[in-house]
Computed example of a mutant assay.
Amino acid sequence: MIAVVVTRAVPDHLRGYIGRFLTEVVPGVFVGRTSRAVADRIWERTSLAVEDGASAIVLTDASREQGYEIRTAGSEPPNILDVDGLHLVGLVGPLIGREKTEGVKEST
């Protein structure tokens, strides 16, 4: 299975641990081929040690419609929605363009 781990503001010991199993291609982004058991151990340790930072892991999963699964952890992880087997990322924030449409009537 292919695993991708993305970290932000995590302790150095965690980056060192992940680096034992995966290659750090750019700071905070790890990629590699591993077994499901090793990927689960990496995620277990990552989710416990994340503290004030954030982390996400993407794993190949042939049983899912998209062919992968997403897990997130940290102080403010995004909302991952599972809609009929598809992972969608729900972002919370201001609506783009809202100020342009205020006061504009919808056509009927």
Rank of each mutant, 00 (worst) to 15 (best):
S63A: 13
Y17A: 06
R33I: 12
E65N: 12
L48E: 13
E69C: 06
G16V: 05
T72P: 00
A56W: 00
D40T: 08
R64Y: 06
P94V: 09
D82H: 01
E44V: 12
S55E: 03
R71C: 03
I42G: 00
Q66T: 04
E51H: 12
G67D: 05
K100G: 10
L22H: 04
V10Y: 02
V29R: 13
T60F: 08
S75F: 11
I96K: 15
V38W: 05
L86Y: 10
D84F: 10
L22W: 04
E76P: 12
Y68R: 03
L86N: 07
L81E: 04
T108C: 13
I18T: 03
G93E: 06
G19T: 08
E99V: 09
A62I: 14
P78C: 02
Y68F: 11
E106L: 13
E106S: 12
V83I: 10
R41V: 08
V92G: 10
G28T: 09
T72C: 02
M1E: 08
G74S: 05
I42P: 00
R71P: 01
I70S: 01
I57T: 02
R8P: 05
R20N: 09
E24K: 08
I70N: 00
R71L: 08
L81H: 03
T108M: 14
G16S: 06
R15P: 03
G16N: 11
A9R: 13
T46N: 01
P77L: 09
T108F: 14
S55N: 07
R71T: 02
L14W: 00
V25T: 15
G97C: 13
R71H: 08
L22G: 03
F30G: 01
L59I: 10
A73K: 00
V26Q: 15
A73T: 01
V4E: 07
R8H: 14
R20K: 15
S63Y: 13
V38N: 05
A62F: 15
L91H: 12
E106Y: 14
V29L: 11
G74M: 04
T72F: 00
I80C: 00
A3K: 02
G90K: 03
Y68Q: 04
R98M: 13
E99G: 12
L88H: 04
V4L: 12
A37M: 10
V58M: 06
L22T: 03
K105A: 14
S47V: 07
G93I: 05
P27R: 10
R15S: 07
R15Q: 10
A62M: 14
V104A: 08
V4Y: 05
R41G: 06
A3G: 10
V104T: 13
S55M: 08
E24Q: 11
V38C: 07
I2T: 14
P77D: 08
R98C: 09
A37C: 14
V31L: 15
L59H: 01
G93L: 08
Q66D: 06
D52L: 13
